[in-house]
Each structure stands twice: as structure tokens, then as C-alpha cells.
Simulated assay, not measured.
Amino acid sequence: MRLPPVRGPITELLFDRLAARPGTPLPGVPVAGGLDDDDLQLALFACYELHYQGFDDVDDAWEWEPALLGFRRVLEGELERALAAAVPRPDPAAAGEVRRALGRLTCADDGPGVSLYLQREADLETFREFVVHRSIYHLKEADPHTWAIPRLSGGPKAALVEIQADEYGGGRRERMHSELFRATMRGLGLDDSYGAYLARVPAATLAISNVMSLFGLHRRLRGALLGHLAAIEMTSSVPNRRYATGLRRLGGDPETARFFEEHVQADAVHEQIAANDMCGGFAAGHPELAGDILYGAACALALERRWADQVLACWERGAGSLRGQPVPASAGRAP
């Protein structure tokens, strides 16, 4: 993956510096934005990506360059302020009530209509767009939440490892969820290489991944990271069943639909582990962070709703939800 085209003054400045030798000074952030600011979200995504697979045209030594970390800190401050403005903190809950509070949060969330739209109405090109959006996270699925493992101990750590082991295929490459998603992309005639569509997705898509990385890379936010993961697991099975049904309706074969079908069963199990053993256990040991768990869950749900509202508005008026022209089919086998 190479650095994508810039989207404004922040990425223009940042990418210019990243193309130079590590240690090149970075001036102050020229402009700041919020959750829907393409320039801010892409800049922050690029900063975080240096902790994952990186960019072919960026020296790996930039990862811990103090000047870049200072630059990123300003961007993260904007992201945290935007989150605080967009996502009210849930009512406090005692440590022993965190499991029930998570259940109330996720049950009260009727979820975005994307899954129903894809199940019943979407055409093949719309489904391919959906998969492009999801590729930004699913090609590194589980990685942001894995940052929490060394920051936990005892039962919560064991619970998270149990979840993540499934996400990584139990040590078998072909069963890793990221690899299953690659098969879905290939089956839909999409480029399955890591980051292939980074330039095409809007700020709302990038913000979903950025919040995971924000929570994952800061120990002070480990409670929010666990709540975030729990919310994903607790609201995953039904939408994934609908995605699988919609893809089969459009002619998707078993290999192409397997990613979604795998999540129907796996996440039903993960839901219980995440809510009870991981979050409940962590709250019992760290009652002062119980509110962070609920806030992380609320952030996951709110960002998903924001993204869904935006893409559905595009689809319902017959417009594409990605930046630029429609995504062409690759050599993959589109249904």
C-alpha cells in the first residue's frame, strides 16, 4: 500500500513529510476538523497505519518519530473532542451491572438499515460498494483490539485471547477472518490487496477504524476498547445473517458468502464471552473504568449509525457512496 492522494492541507503537509527522511520536522496542524472531515480522518488513519502494515513509500522509522507523534496527538485531540460532542456518555453503572448495561445499550440500538437493504433490495454494485467500505477494517480484522491483550490480566485477558484466537482462525491461515474477507472480495471481482481502496472511502468509514486504533493504542482507553469490541460482538450475528442472505440472493457462491456466515455463529458465542467474562470481569477489577466500557460501546454503535445513515442516503437516491467513479471489477469472479 502506498500513500493515497491528499484530501486537504493536513494530508498535504503530512504526506509531504512522510515522503522525506524520518526526523524531518512537522509544523503545527494547519486545520482541524471532526468526524466527517475527510482531511483529518485520512491524516489520522495514515498516522495509525504506521503501527499496522505501513506504507511502501514511507520509512518504517517514522512510526515512533517524536515529531510525528506530536502531530498525531493534535489530530487525536480533535477526534476525541468530536466523539465527546457526538456520543453522550451512557448513564453510570456499578461494576456488577456492566453486563446488563451493555445489553440495554445494544438492545436499544435498533441498528442501521444497511443490513436489511442489502438483504432485500441492493443490486450487485451496491453490495460491492459495501464490501469496499468494510475492507478498510476487515482486512486487518481484530488487530486494533489485540492491542489490549498485554494491558489485561487474569480472566479478562483470557476471555479476549479466546475471542481473538477465533478471529485469527485458531492458527490456520485459511480460517482467519481477514482471509475469509479476501475470498469475499475476490468472489465479487474486487481487488483483495491490503488498503487497495483507501483512496475511495469517505471520512465516516475511516472514522470507524480510527476510533478503534485510538482506543487500542492508548492504555488509558483500554476500558473503552473492551466496550467497543463487546458492542461489535453483541450486534453482529443478525446483520451478518442478512448480509449472507443478500449475497446469496445476488448469486454469491458459498466461498464468497462464508465470511458473513462464519460471523453468524462465531459472534453469537463471542457475545457472551465479551460481555460477561471480558467486560464484566474487567469492570469487577477496575470499577473506576466501568463508565469507559459503556462509552466505548456507545461510540461503536454511534459511529456505525452515522456511517449507515450516510451510505443509505446515497443508495436510496441512486448515488454511489464511495469517492470517485464506480469501482471496476478486477479479474476476480463476480457473480
Rank of each mutant, 00 (worst) to 15 (best):
R7Y: 01
P9G: 08
I10E: 09
L13W: 09
F15C: 06
D16E: 14
A19C: 05
A20T: 12
A20S: 14
P30W: 08
G33D: 09
G33R: 11
G34A: 12
D36Y: 03
D36A: 13
A46E: 01
A46G: 01
Y48K: 10
Q53T: 06
Q53V: 01
G54N: 05
D57K: 11
V58E: 00
W64R: 15
P66I: 06
L68C: 07
F71G: 04
R73E: 15
R73F: 12
E76G: 02
E80H: 04
D91S: 15
A95M: 13
V98K: 10
R104G: 12
L105H: 04
A108W: 00
G111R: 00
L118H: 10
L118T: 02
A122T: 10
D123V: 05
S135D: 10
I136Y: 04
H138L: 13
W147Q: 08
I149F: 14
L152S: 03
S153G: 15
P156N: 10
A158P: 03
A158T: 14
A159L: 10
E162F: 08
E162T: 13
E162D: 13
Y168M: 10
G171L: 13
L190N: 12
D192T: 06
Y194E: 04
Y197E: 03
A199S: 13
I208N: 01
S213F: 13
G216I: 05
L225W: 06
G227R: 05
E233T: 05
R241K: 04
R242L: 11
A244L: 09
L247K: 11
R249P: 08
D253M: 05
A257F: 00
R258F: 02
H263E: 09
A274R: 05
A274E: 07
M278P: 00
M278A: 11
M278S: 06
E288S: 01
Y295R: 08
A298C: 08
V311L: 14
W315P: 08
R317G: 03
R317K: 15
R317S: 08
A319M: 02
R323Q: 11
P335I: 03
